[in-house]
């Protein structure tokens, strides 16, 4: 199981790096989806099959499709590739990379002193997850629900449009007066 964890962790890391460095938005997007799959495998190996399934259903299956939907609507083609090329000059990414490497070295140093206990994987099934969701964390669930309702109402309000007739025979007097 450890081997699977390391393989999927490496895949996730590589894919995430590819997401940042790709110039074409849809290709970057596809790497992001693969990265989510790898994270789902990590969840599965760590004994959380329910969360692993939800990761694929919600993130890769729903949210990412909506992202792609927006990308398709905006029709980002050659112009965005050109813009990305300007963004990815060495002068821009050198300093953040150095800072990240410093953080990484610190992280490795910190983990070296901590002994990681190789505890056996405890599988947490769907019933346990829902018990804690609707038991101890019920307030958080309800607040999230409210947030979603607010989002839906807002989207409806923005999306609602007064019906306009463009044909001159169908136009009512109101629109002529405007």
């Amino acid at each position: 199981m450890d081997v699977i964890f390391y393989i999927s962790a490496i895949v996730a890391l590589l894919c995430t790096i590819m997401v940042v460095t790709r110039k074409h938005i849809v290709h970057a997007f596809l790497y992001l989806v693969v990265s989510l799959f790898a994270i789902s495998v990590i969840f599965f190996v760590s004994g959380a099959p329910f969360v692993a399934a939800l990761e694929v259903i919600v993130y890769a299956g729903a949210i990412m499709i909506l992202f792609l939907f927006a990308i398709m609507m905006l029709n980002l083609g050659k112009d965005s590739v050109k813009k990305e090329k300007v963004l990815l000059t060495p002068g821009i990414w050198t300093l953040p990379t150095i800072l990240c490497v410093v953080l990484l070295i610190e992280l490795v140093y910190a983990f070296r002193s901590v002994r990681l206990a190789g505890s056996p994987v405890k599988i947490i099934d769907a019933a346990q997850v829902s018990n804690s969701l609707f038991g101890g964390y019920v307030l958080a669930v309800e607040l999230t629900g409210m947030l979603l309702i607010a989002g839906i109402v807002g989207a409806y309000h923005i999306g609602k449009e007064k019906k306009r007739e463009y044909h001159r025979y169908l136009q009512t007097n109101d629109s002529e007066n405007e």
Partner: peptide, 26 residues
């Protein structure tokens, strides 16, 4: 014989949407 069997189907069917979107876009 997965214990999350049905969820696995949901995951796969939601990924199936990619085929249409990517084919249409590309």
């Amino acid at each position: 014989d997965l214990n999350i069997g049905l969820l696995f189907f949901f995951a796969m069917s939601s990924l199936g949407a990619y085929t249409i979107v990517l084919a249409g876009w590309s």
